[in-house]
């Protein structure tokens, strides 16, 4: 371009079907590449610029707001069936900048950068004065609750020994004094009933993940734990889920692999 020349861009409306298709492709890409936490759902398109790209195609520069759903990223439930995390549960918002190339009708995410922010304590307490707020995942009460809950689950489990993958969310409840945790787990090669050395248990080649919700209640002279885990069907190995050049098709997803067609086990 000659010096001083600024290449032009166009600004379609944020709610234009074309813009929405690109934003949905970006959210799909985000969810396929998230390594932890919860699946994100599109909430609002903030800005859009469409730049011409040489020799062919266009680049969509989008700013989008997302909201956390209740589906963990390891949960194979389609995003359409996931609920948005409600304000009373202490919602979390994502602010994302994305660049999407449209060429020959195909959408490819070239860049995506998101920052997540929980709703303010003030806003949560305004709509629900007694609701527990999100707690730090490093809090010792949180890590203890997750470890105790997983131990309780493994003790009652006749199948594989499950290891903790991540604590994804936690709340400290004042009355009764308790800790609510949600965490992801993965099956290992060991049987839960006869684990001598948990450190030697390896994750299965065909990864099998689960997602648990637990409450650890402090009682006089001890504690009580209630835990429910959903174990997802084994997942076939993904070629390269973190490949930034991976193409995101605007068309609906293909049918899930056969290994994922089975329902979860609770």
């Amino acid at each position: 371009a000659p010096p001083g020349a600024v290449p032009g861009y166009r600004e379609p409306p944020c709610d234009d079907p074309e813009t929405e298709t690109v934003a949905m492709a970006a959210v799909k890409y985000l969810n396929e590449n998230l390594l932890q936490g919860y699946k994100q759902i599109l909430n609002q398109i903030d800005k859009v610029k469409v730049w011409p790209r040489r020799p062919f195609g266009e680049v969509y520069e989008l700013e989008i707001d997302t909201l956390e759903t209740t589906c963990h990223v390891l949960d194979p439930t389609p995003l359409e069936n996931c609920s948005v995390r409600q304000l009373a549960e202490h919602a979390v918002e994502g602010d994302c900048d994305v660049h999407v190339l449209k060429q020959d009708g195909q959408l490819t995410v070239m860049h995506a950068n998101c920052h997540s922010t929980p709703d303010s304590a003030e806003d949560v307490l305004k709509i629900c004065p007694h609701c527990p707020l999100l707690a730090s995942l490093n809090d010792t009460r949180v890590t203890h609750a997750a470890e105790a809950a997983l131990a309780a689950f493994n003790a009652k489990n006749n199948g594989s020994y499950f290891k903790l993958v991540e604590v994804s969310r936690a709340q400290l409840v004042p009355l009764p004094v308790s800790t609510y945790v949600e965490f992801a787990v993965a099956a290992t090669s060991c049987a839960a009933k006869d684990v001598a050395d948990p450190a030697s248990c390896q994750l299965l080649a065909e990864k099998q993940y689960g997602f648990c919700k637990a409450t650890l209640t402090e009682k006089l002279g001890g504690e009580e734990v209630a835990v429910t885990c959903t174990v997802f069907p084994s997942q076939v190995a993904d070629a390269n889920p973190a490949d930034p050049a991976a193409a995101v098709q605007a068309a609906p997803s293909a049918a899930p692999p056969a290994a994922m067609a089975v329902g979860p086990i609770v």
Binding site: E11, P12, P13, C14, D15, T19, E20, I41, L42, N43, Q44, I45, D46, K47, V48, D65, L67, V84, L87, A91, E93, D119, S120, D123
Partner: peptide, 27 residues
Amino acid sequence: KPNAAAAGGAAGPMVRPCPGRVRHFKI
């Protein structure tokens, strides 16, 4: 005051193209 039509301005209500609609709720 300049006439909006004479200046090439639209006579109808202004459409704000962005940001788009909120699908769930704002936090």
